[in-house]
């Protein structure tokens, strides 16, 4: 053994920022996350040059997967131009040399906070969701050690009880985003704070989704063709946001998840949350070739809701 076999040439920064040992740990944990869909796998979670809670978990996954040919799209709340999405996209490009794109269909890797694009993802694409709180049980059990035991025992009674109480009190399930969902019939997972509108997109999807919480140091995954079933009672069906009939005031797109824009006169306008899909809609209306891909929702309806 020689010294040179143990060392390597000095580099100011590893390719993709993370050093090889950090990447290997993430790879090992990603494989375990895929092997047990929806189960939260702990990982060390290195500090990256962005504040915790700002997508550092998703970023570490993206940095591990990325190579100079990976075409990357980054969105926040559905928008590519959101300031933090712009910041993450710029960082990914800077440390990897990877090309970036705004077009969902053009992307190999999509890192997203709080949305799944409206256009269907394909088998060759990977979706990385940023996760603020990986523990769906936290509202009923803030202690992580106890919550882990509950997952171990598949003890989701308190979760069901909470949903039942909401129905009794308010006439419906009051959960907004982050709707708890059963994955592969075994682990209850938070799909991250995506709206209820987006959860069915994870069910039996063609693409792989990796969810990563940097601050809380947990990684989990939904492989392709995996059952993701929102927790609902047989007689109280799952309901997405009532956006199916709304029209985007800027693009004219109809039947997708919308942002509500309050107006001075007390009314509200709506604009499509998936900003690049809105752009495509406008371009088509202006006579450019239709670049819109197939969407999960058609005429405001999910094609086959689980």
């Amino acid at each position: 053994m020689s010294l040179s076999s143990l060392t390597k040439p000095w580099e100011p920064m590893s390719y993709g920022f993370l050093d090889p040992s950090a990447k290997r740990e993430l790879r090992r944990k990603m494989l375990k996350a895929v092997a047990v869909p929806g189960c939260q796998m702990p990982y060390a979670s290195r500090e990256v040059p962005m504040a915790r809670g700002w997508g550092t978990g998703g970023l570490q996954v993206s940095l591990t997967l990325i190579n100079p040919k990976t075409r990357v799209k980054v969105i926040d709340q559905g928008a590519d131009d959101s300031v933090n999405a712009a910041s993450i996209r710029r960082f990914l490009a800077r440390v990897s040399g990877a090309p970036t794109t705004l077009d969902t269909l053009d992307a190999d890797l999509i890192q997203s906070r709080h949305r799944i694009p409206e256009e269907k993802l394909r088998a060759d694409q990977i979706l990385v969701l940023q996760v603020p709180n990986p523990e769906p049980l936290r509202p009923v059990e803030p202690n992580m050690s106890i919550a882990r035991q509950m997952h171990g025992d598949a003890d989701y009674g308190r979760m069901w009880l909470q949903l039942y109480e909401q129905i009794v009190r308010s006439g419906r399930v009051m959960q907004g985003a982050s709707y708890p969902s059963m994955v592969n019939g075994r682990h209850v997972m938070t799909p991250s704070p995506i709206p209820r509108w987006d959860v069915p997109k994870l069910h039996m999807a063609k693409h792989l989704t990796i969810l990563s919480a940097g601050r809380e140091k947990r990684i989990f995954a939904v492989p392709p063709f995996t059952r993701v079933e929102p927790l609902v009672f047989d007689d109280v069906p799952y309901r997405v946001e009532e956006h199916g009939q709304l029209t985007c005031y800027r693009s004219g797109a109809e039947g997708f998840f919308m942002n509500e824009i309050p107006q001075p006169d007390g009314s509200a306008l709506h604009e499509i949350s998936d900003s690049e899909y809105g752009v495509k809609h406008i371009r088509t209306a202006q006579g450019e070739p239709d670049a819109r891909g197939e969407t999960w929702y058609q005429n405001g309806q999910m094609e086959d809701t689980p």
Binding site: A51, R52, G53, W54, T56, D76, Q77, G78, S82, N84, R113, H114, R115, P132, R172, V173, M174, Q175, G176, A177, S178, P193, I194, P195, R196, W197, R215, E241, E242, H243, F257, M258, N259, E260, S273
Partner: peptide, 23 residues
């Protein structure tokens, strides 16, 4: 972690907010 999470509340949350409003 705590400071990062605290300042992350400055990030837009309008999708989750919209989802809660709907319910």
């Amino acid at each position: 972690e705590s400071s990062g999470f605290c300042i992350h509340f400055k990030l837009p949350h309008y999708v989750t907010f919209q989802s809660s409003l709907d319910a």
